[in-house]
């Protein structure tokens, strides 16, 4: 039983570095996609949706990937603290931003948005 356990542990030591690096890379690509969404979408409220990709899945993937390749428990606890901070503060900041824009009278675009209007107003 102990041998099987140490076997799994050995495999895990080999596997965790490529897996963590791959998750970091995937999260970075998701951040890039969120940025592209921020550049493409037509108004402030839709841009908030694109920015929240970066804040949730991109940050979570990068942080979990860094947890996998981290050398010790101290680093994991710090990464966990960053994860909790980001997951608590990013919706609050998004809501504050949306509420401020709504209070200041920025009207959202309602209804179907096609390519033609977006190219005209956003390029």
């Amino acid at each position: 039983m102990a041998e099987v356990f140490s076997d799994i542990l050995g495999y895990w030591e080999i596997v965790r570095f490529p897996l963590g690096a791959l998750m970091c890379f995937g999260g970075a690509i998701l951040c890039l996609i969120g940025t592209v969404g921020v550049l493409r979408f037509p108004d402030i409220y839709t841009r908030l949706h694109a920015a929240s990709i970066t804040d949730t899945s991109g940050a979570a993937l990068v942080l979990i990937g860094m947890m996998l390749i981290s050398p010790g428990w101290l680093v994991i606890s710090k990464l966990f603290a960053i994860c909790v901070f980001i997951f608590l503060t990013s919706p609050t900041a998004s809501h504050a931003l949306a509420n401020a824009a709504h209070t200041a009278g920025v009207q959202p675009i309602i209804g179907r948005v096609g390519t033609s209007e977006a190219d005209g107003g956003d390029a």
Binding site: T35, R47, A51, V62, L63, I82, L97, A101, V106
Partner: peptide, 20 residues
């Protein structure tokens, strides 16, 4: 508000970039 959104998202990315 677009600018503030961009700066906020920039800060989140800065945190990730500092860790990496």
């Amino acid at each position: 508000y677009d600018r503030i959104l961009a700066v906020n998202s920039f800060g989140t990315k800065t945190v990730l970039a500092l860790g990496l």
